[in-house]
């Protein structure tokens, strides 16, 4: 764990910022964060000057942040932070696929949180964004074994955690929990990383864990998985997480799931575009050979 435990200095302030609703984020604070790290500042400027954003002459970090928008900038920051944590040659899962899934899950969790009137939708966003950090731990610490897991999972179109359990004897939920604890994330976020696949690991799963559990399933069923299509057959309404949530948040019972799914599909193009613009468009298919 030590080799990945040295989180970049800006990680903690960044996580604090990600907890805030977009409208409460002070742009100066973001500019400070971006400027703190030369490489990150350069990346922001490069992106803001790319043809995607209209080829304007952007010379200051402040205008780059304005052009890119807070949402994209905080994604970029987190992404670059993680790239710092994970050396390029250690990414076993395709970074583009990882970020599509993480951002997709963040967005879906947040939207679902709003639908059920959960009081902290931004926290839900963060929970969705970070739920799979265990994949990064496995990439760095168990590179070869994890590569094998991904290869088998893609070949069998099976859920990744099931294969991890078989091959490694533990899952990215276990390693995610360790990293989350190491980074001193809140108890709720630690729980999310640990039990988003299997809620029964907790005696009383909280609403965040339930929300992320459902969002993760939905994302994987709508082509925002780990870079391969899983064989899925999910009765969300019959899921334990749904039952737990609906007891405290009756609005969930009034949610048209088909409609919600179509909304996700609509937003997916946006997610893909954001990820491509921040992390570069790459073929997200898992290559079984590598």
């Amino acid at each position: 764990m030590d080799s990945i435990s040295t989180a970049p200095a800006i990680l903690q302030p960044l996580l604090d910022m990600l907890r805030l609703p977009l409208e409460e984020i002070k742009i100066e604070k973001v500019v400070d964060l971006v400027s703190y790290d030369g490489a990150i500042a350069a990346q922001c400027l490069r992106l803001a000057n790319s043809p995607l954003y209209g080829r304007r002459e952007i010379e200051t970090v402040r205008s780059a942040v304005m052009v890119l928008g807070l949402d994209r900038v905080r994604t970029l920051l987190l992404g670059l932070c993680m790239n710092r944590v994970i050396p390029a040659d250690k990414w076993v899962i395709e970074p583009n696929a990882f970020w599509r899934h993480s951002l997709g899950c963040a967005l879906v969790t947040q939207r679902m949180a709003r639908k059920i009137e959960y009081h902290e939708p931004e926290k839900a966003y963060l929970a969705g964004l970070l739920h799979d950090i265990g994949l990064l731990v496995n990439s760095v610490l168990y590179t070869e074994g994890f590569r094998e897991c991904l290869r088998i999972a893609a070949e069998q179109q099976a859920p990744l955690h099931v294969i991890e359990e078989q091959v490694l004897g533990f899952t990215h939920c276990d390693s995610g929990r360790m990293l989350a604890e190491h980074w001193r994330l809140s108890k709720e976020l630690v729980d999310v990383t640990y039990c988003h696949y299997d809620l029964s690991l907790l005696a009383a799963p909280g609403p965040l864990a339930c929300l992320v559990h459902l969002s993760d399933l939905l994302c994987r069923a709508r082509y925002l998985g780990y870079g391969y299509d899983e064989i899925m057959s999910v009765d969300l309404g019959g899921d334990a997480a749904w039952q737990i949530l609906v007891a405290s948040y009756p609005a969930l019972g009034n949610m048209d799931l088909v409609r919600f799914t179509l909304d996700i599909d609509g937003a997916m193009d946006q997610i893909v575009a954001t990820v491509d613009s921040v992390f570069g468009s790459k073929n997200v298919a898992v290559s079984a050979a590598t």
Binding site: L217, A221, R222, D229, M232, S233, V234, D235, G237
Partner: peptide, 8 residues
């Protein structure tokens, strides 16, 4: 009926 999600 129960709504079931399959891939896509």
């Amino acid at each position: 009926f129960r709504l079931v999600h399959f891939t896509g």
